[in-house]
Design a protein around this nucleic acid. Structure first.
Length: 103
DNA sequence: GGTCTGACTAGGT
DNA sequence: AACCTAGCCAGAC
């Protein structure tokens, strides 16, 4: 049973349109939880639902956040490329180009 | 109920 | 540009 805050985070992530990305801090703010960027990452690590575009969430440096299992990072990169997002060989994504800017 | 741990971030060196 | 530190806060134990 996900907590209320997790539910808010998931809702915010679902709003990210295809072909765009958002940062953890951005999602936190969107979810009404400013300053909870770390909780966003933690919530995604606990993901059990499949209808959430978790791969569209990256860190403020425009990179896929490193984690304990590199395969998951590769999967995220692949999913983003499938949506037309360009990732440099160094693993950088242009936030200037792809950052989702909700109204 | 104190401590530790992160898929984070901003600012300083 | 890479690295370090402090601030952050909900879970896990």
């Amino acid at each position: 049973m996900p907590s209320l805050n997790y539910q808010k985070i998931y809702n915010a992530v679902k709003r990210i349109p295809k072909g765009k990305v958002a940062t953890y801090g951005q999602i936190a703010q969107l979810a009404g939880l400013p300053g909870h960027a770390r909780q966003v990452g933690y919530a995604l690590s606990h993901l059990d639902e499949s209808d959430i575009p978790w791969h569209r969430v990256i860190n403020a440096k425009g990179e896929i956040s490193p984690r304990w299992h590199p395969d998951l990072e590769n999967e995220q990169a692949q999913r983003l490329r499938e949506e037309g997002i360009n990732i440099t060989p160094a693993g950088k994504i242009s936030l200037n180009t792809y950052r989702w800017q909700p109204r």
